[in-house]
Nucleic acid binder design. Structure first.
Lengths: 140, 140
DNA sequence: GTAGGTGCAAAGAGTTTGCATACGC
DNA sequence: GCGTATGCAAACTCTTTGCACCTAC
């Protein structure tokens, strides 16, 4: 589905800021901050205020197009394209690149926890931090 | 080790704000925000400005007495007592209570990841969100 | 007595909101 | 043309910093 089709499917008018922002998430599958997006607009030669960017991000979350992520290496809010499947992340602490991992090693463990602690687990977050292949090579 | 001994052991002068803050972490083993700590001072009848609280938290992190944590249910910085052992958390989304879990189900998985993605994993975060026993009972 | 800690006030970063204008449908 | 989106400016929250005074050692 193209960006324009996606917007239409979610009852969102086709506007320049929305097209660009949705396109960024569609293309890169990386974590993006409001500031990252603002800079992309700058590069395009057509800046868009942060207030508009935040409003669009909120809408996209509401529509389920993106979701916000929580990463310990960042003090600002980050957003990623919504994934149909539960996934985990490998986050490079040097270049900030994000690798998605579909498999999940903790589902069974979650069931054990529910029993042993009488805790009703609704979801979990699992992120791995380290150095990606490219950054490792850059050192050698 | 008492609070005063701990301070001395880390070359920190024994002052009122430091004693209280360290005492809070020693006693509760919960995630605390600067605001939580500020309110504890209020209750004591001897308020301490947030600037002092933040400065002390930074020092305690530097000394390895506490560490900052990243929790998706909170938009403010949270801190917890430093633990000698790698641990994970069960976080109640209703009362914010934190339960510590020592066992870790992903160590082997981490090794697999390193191979399959040529990614050098240095550490990971794993948090479970849900409803604790007390909050479940409160509903029934 | 001195180095370091605290309290106050002001600044800073990131995010949100109000309101008038502009634009997609 | 109508209703929503945008742009601008101002407000807001959380955190940090500068500086004068104070206090533990």
């Amino acid at each position: 589905m193209t960006v324009d089709q996606t917007l239409k499917a979610h009852d969102l008018k086709k506007t320049y800021p929305r097209q660009i922002i949705l396109g960024l998430f569609a293309k890169h599958d990386q974590f993006l901050s409001a500031e990252d997006i603002s800079q992309a607009f700058e590069k395009n030669g057509h800046p868009v205020p942060l207030s508009t960017i935040y409003r669009i991000l909120d809408q996209f979350i509401e529509k389920g197009l993106i979701s916000d992520v929580h990463v310990e290496t960042s003090s600002v809010k980050l957003y990623e394209r919504a994934h149909a499947h539960h996934a985990h992340h490998l986050i490079c602490t040097e270049c900030e690149k994000v690798i998605h991992v579909e498999s999940c090693p903790v589902h069974d463990y979650e069931a054990d926890l529910s029993k042993s602690h009488a805790f009703l687990v609704t979801h979990h977050t699992l992120n791995f931090y380290g150095v990606c292949e490219a950054c490792q090579k850059a050192h050698s």
